[in-house]
Simulated scan of single mutants.
Amino acid sequence: MQSDTLTDRLTARPALRRQVSCGLALGLALMLSSCGPQMALARSAPDSFAPLVRKVLPSVVNIAVTETVSGGEMLGELPPELRDTPLGREFRRKFGNRREQVAGAGSGFIIDPSGIIVTNNHVVDHADKIVVSLTSGRRFPAKVLGRDELTDVAVIKVQTNEALPSVPWGDSGKAEVGDWILAAGNPFGLGGSVSVGIVSARGRDLGAGPFDNFLQLDAPINPGNSGGPVFNMEGQVIGVSSVIVSPTGASVGIGFAIPSDTVSPIVTQLLAHGSIARGWLGVSVEDRDEGVMIASEDRTGPAGRAGIRPGDVVLAINGDHIDSSRGLIRAIARVTPGNNVRIAIRRQGREMEFTVTVGRRPTELQAG
């Protein structure tokens, strides 16, 4: 595995201060005047990101995974136009019954000195063998402690008697569009690398699942960065790199990270239980002009047993207004299975309220 020895130098431009007239006040008095809103000065970039990199990079790890696939699975990778050709038949003859080892690579970061590491679920979900490499070159076998497919978060652990460098969580809720961030990881398997950019947008929904709430970043993120940390300027993790949008497969300046406010509680639950217990109603829902409508349901599910029916429009859960299907799904998912919730609905112009004992959400379902 080669190490990336290239270092990009970043030259910070001085922040330009805008001046606004307010009455006859001039100069500094203008900035302190109470006759209008005060302008907040932009946070300038540091002269160098090197101190931040030295602080956080030792906690960033490369994750190598090995997965065993059958020849039949490999055949599925053949383009359809080649499967019934002489080349396709020869491929089936040679590899159809063979089991092969396929290697992959991703990134992660250490959150506890005992060797607990956070990464993406899609990095390790089919791994037969996981090897973690530190920036120092040391390598450790790792095992999966817990995975959550719906948020694409996984926790793994290496066995070691020494304290490893770790990084703290930051508050992604405080990250603003335009804030500087530093992304670290293992792009294209090159080894520990960093890139710098800003938060481009918040709350992105990519349609990958009901819990999408990505931070959009313009820092270059490439294949192999998956699972790597995104740091604020204090060296705290505010996101986990997960998705890129690209027609080429490489970075075009649009990447997405799972916010730390989503990842951190998931990690806590995975460490405690190995999986996530989410609430479930047993219904499918649709956004309509009149609100969130129950489109269909499992009559033996929690909502069906409580008396909720298709066509009902959900108004509130435990008194909190519901204005979207995603909002309903998230509200129910936060409820511990076995607990009761009050669901207010409108049925044929009449408002009603039901008490529902929430069930446990099957991971493969995307309904409420």
Rank of each mutant, 00 (worst) to 15 (best):
S200P: 08
A201S: 14
A201V: 13
R204T: 09
A208M: 14
A208P: 12
G209P: 04
P210C: 08
P210T: 06
N213D: 15
N213L: 12
F214T: 05
L217P: 05
D218G: 09
D218C: 12
P220V: 09
I221V: 13
N222R: 06
G228C: 12
P229S: 12
V230R: 02
V230A: 12
V230N: 05
F231S: 11
E234T: 15
E234Q: 15
G235P: 11
V237C: 04
V237K: 00
V237W: 01
I238A: 03
G239L: 05
G239M: 04
V245R: 10
S246Q: 04
S246H: 03
P247A: 12
P247L: 13
G249N: 03
A250L: 10
S251M: 10
V252W: 00
V252F: 01
V252C: 01
G253Y: 01
G255Q: 07
F256L: 10
I258L: 06
P259S: 06
P265S: 02
P265V: 03
I266V: 13
T268E: 08
Q269I: 03
L271S: 00
A272P: 01
H273T: 09
G274M: 01
S275G: 11
L281M: 07
G282K: 03
V283Q: 01
V285P: 04
V285Y: 06
D287P: 08
D287R: 09
E290Q: 15
M293E: 15
M293N: 14
